[in-house]
C-alpha cells in the first residue's frame, strides 16, 4: 500500500443478520488452510423459550483482536505479537507450542495445529489485506453481517457504524479491549 500509516483494524458484527449459514466458516477454512477439527471463526446458535414462544440467536465468534491481549502477555517467546496495524498474530518460527496463550484467551479463539506443532488463530486475513482485499469471511457473507475497517479512518464503514450505533464487546470485564464490536 502506498499510504504507510499504521491502521487500527477492527470488525463490526451484526449477529441479528446472521443466518448461521457457515459461509464465513468455510471461507476461512479455505482461505487459511485451517485443518479439519479446528476453526478460526464460528457461529454459536442458541434457542430460548417454549413452543410457540421461541427465539433463535446467532452469535458469530472469533479472535477478538484485543488491544490488551492476554495471549501476547503470556507468550514466553514473543511468538504472539501485535502487528503495526493492531492485528494479533502468531509467528510460527518463534512458537514453541507451549499453548499458554490458548489457556489465557478468554474467547477460546486459538487452537493448536498438531501438524505444525504451533498455535494458530484468526489473522484478519493479513495476507489478503496486504493484497488489498478484505478478509475472506467479510467478502463472502451473504447478508453482510461483518464489516471490516480501520478505526483510525473516520470514513471507514466500520468507524461510521461505531459512531452511529450502540455496540458491545464480549467479556468486557476481562479488560481485554476487543476490536470486534457487536451491534446491540
Amino acid at each position: 500500500m502506498s499510504d504507510e500509516r499504521p491502521r487500527r483494524y477492527a470488525m463490526v458484527i451484526d449477529g441479528r443478520a446472521c443466518l448461521n449459514c457457515k459461509a464465513c466458516v468455510v471461507a476461512c477454512k479455505a482461505e487459511n488452510d485451517v485443518p479439519l477439527g479446528h476453526n478460526r471463526i464460528w457461529v454459536n446458535q442458541t434457542e430460548k423459550g417454549s413452543f410457540p414462544f421461541v427465539s433463535v440467536q446467532m452469535d458469530p465468534g472469533q479472535c477478538m483482536q484485543c488491544d490488551n491481549p492476554p495471549c501476547v502477555r503470556v507468550c514466553p517467546t514473543g511468538a504472539s505479537y501485535i502487528d503495526a496495524d493492531g492485528i494479533i498474530l502468531v509467528n510460527p518460527a518463534k512458537c514453541i507450542g507451549c499453548r499458554y496463550c490458548i489457556e489465557a484467551c478468554p474467547y477460546a479463539a486459538r487452537y493448536f495445529d498438531e501438524e505444525s506443532g504451533t498455535v494458530d488463530k484468526c489473522t484478519f486475513c493479513r495476507h489478503r489485506i496486504d493484497a488489498g482485499q478484505e478478509p475472506a469471511c467479510v467478502v463472502t457473507c451473504p447478508t453482510k453481517v461483518r464489516v471490516f475497517g480501520d478505526l483510525d479512518d473516520p470514513d471507514s464503514e466500520a468507524s461510521k457504524l461505531l459512531a452511529r450505533n450502540r455496540v458491545e464487546v464480549r467479556k468486557e470485564e476481562a479488560g481485554t479491549e476487543p476490536k470486534i464490536f457487536y451491534l446491540s
Binding site: 449459514c21 459461509a23 471461507a27 479455505a30 463472502t140 453482510k144
Partner: peptide, 24 residues
C-alpha cells in the same frame, strides 16, 4: 487456491455460501 464471490455478478453480487466456498 481459493473461490471468492464475483462482486460484479448481478444476481449473486458479493455472496458465496458454504457450498460455494467448499467448491475446492
Amino acid at each position: 487456491v481459493k473461490l471468492d464471490p464475483n462482486p460484479h455478478f448481478p444476481k449473486s453480487r458479493s455472496m458465496l455460501c458454504a457450498k460455494g466456498n467448499a467448491g475446492i
